[in-house]
Structure formats: structure tokens, C-alpha cells
Amino acid sequence: MAMGQQAQRSERREVLNVKGLSAGYGPMRVIHDLDLIVYSGERVGLVGLNGHGKSTLFLAIAGLTGWQRGSIRLNGAEVGGTRSQGPGRYTHLVVKRGLALIPQGDEIFTGLTVEEHLDSGAFTRRAWRDRQERKKKVLQIFPPLKKLMGTAVGRLSGGERRMVAIGRGLMAEASLYLVDEPSLGLAPKIGKGVLDALMSVELGDSAMIIAEQNVALLERRVDRVLGMHVGKLKGEAAAALAYQTRREI
């Protein structure tokens, strides 16, 4: 890392600080003693093959894994630690601390309209109060949704549904956005358009981590690219990660 980048990063606020995180499901350990720091204003790319822990890392931050231990600090507050309760018991508190998790696929309710989905993303009291202004910003990012606000989401195309799912996450009062495989299952042109939209989000003091299998969609667009391999992070060189991925296929 260049000295200029180090100096710039040191001036930013830590949004996420993960230390010694291990997590999994039942007897299976997926994340292994992982450390990660993400700063305000950063877009971080997380790339790797299926099954190597990208989604599990996101679920662990949200408190949704089967078990986990280690420290996860979000905006300076501990949200990790050793969990003995069922998944999701404290997720609503993590969301209130500033987390927005945008999972793989659509994760939609087919009978609800586009507008109803967007409104459902305004989870906190402040976000709900400001939801009209937040919807305007989402529609600036995804203009095709403007004419579809009253349409049931089940009638939309795959790309439109993905816009709704991401837009719902952007409605939150979040300081950390976790976006899991935004281009999954989409045609290349549509997937690129979705990534372009994510790049246009003004982060301000917030941060964003985007998990992707397609490293080419993230290169030269995000501040850092991290590789995930068998539950561990493998550095920040996109080219090296692409080489590693090609060898494993």
C-alpha cells in the first residue's frame, strides 16, 4: 500500500473492525480467525469462488450464522463476540447500529409493489421519517423503477427485481452496506449496469463491501479488492486473485 493511501486511510473513521472472527453452521467452520478493517468512504470488493466464505462473513457481521466467536465492532460498538443464541436474535440491534445487508438473489415478496418494498427498507425511525427523500435518491440511482412503483414485484424482470432488492437496502439509515453477489444470475450487460449503479451511491461517512465472483466487474472501480479463500482473506491484489481463481476452476 502506498504511503499516501496509508495517510488518507488513517484520517478516516473505522466503520467496521473485525478481529479473530471464526464462524460457521453446526459443526462446520467456514470463517477462520479473520481480521478486517473498513473505513468510512471506502468501497471494498470481496471476491472468491462459491463456498469460500463471502456470504458467511456478511451473515456473521449481521449475527445470522449458526455460531461465531471473535470481535466485530460496528461504528465502535461490539456486535460480535461468542454467540450461543439462535441466529438472528440480535440482528435488529445490529441494523440499528448502522448495518444494511443486501443478500444474494432477489429476496422479495412477489405480491408487494416496488414502493412497498422500498418502504420496508426504511427500518429505523429516522429512515422511516425521511423515506420519501430516500426514495427519490434510490430512483435517481435506478431510473427504470420510477414507472414501476405501483407494480407487483413478481411481475418484474430479473434485472428490475435486483434493482428493487438493492434499492430496499439503500433505504436504510446505514453506515455499512454489505452487498452480496449483485450481478448473480443476470446477463452481463445488466450485471454491469447494477454495478455501475452501486458505484454511483454517495457514501459520505458510510462504507460498502461488495462480494462478487467476477473480479473484472470490480477492478479499478473500488478502493480495495480482497480475496476470500477457504474462509480467510488473501490480500488486496485483484490480478493475483484472478490468477488464483483461474487455477482453482
Rank of each mutant, 00 (worst) to 15 (best):
Q213V: 03
V215W: 06
V225H: 06
R224M: 14
M228D: 12
L156M: 11
E212C: 04
L178G: 02
L178D: 04
V201H: 08
I209Y: 03
A207L: 03
S157I: 02
S200D: 15
V201F: 07
K189H: 14
V164D: 00
V153A: 14
V201T: 11
V153M: 10
D180Y: 09
G193P: 08
A172P: 07
R224H: 15
V215Q: 05
G191D: 09
K189D: 13
S157H: 03
E212I: 02
P188L: 07
R155Q: 15
D205T: 11
L184Y: 06
S157D: 06
V201C: 10
D205S: 13
E160V: 12
V179L: 06
M228A: 13
L226Y: 12
A216I: 12
V201W: 10
G169P: 09
I190N: 02
G169Q: 12
S183K: 05
S157N: 02
D196C: 08
V222A: 06
G167I: 10
D205P: 04
L170Q: 01
E181W: 11
K192V: 14
I166F: 07
V215N: 06
A207G: 00
I190T: 07
S200F: 13
R168G: 02
A187C: 03
A207Y: 00
G204V: 04
V201Q: 10
M199I: 14
M208T: 09
G167K: 09
L198T: 02
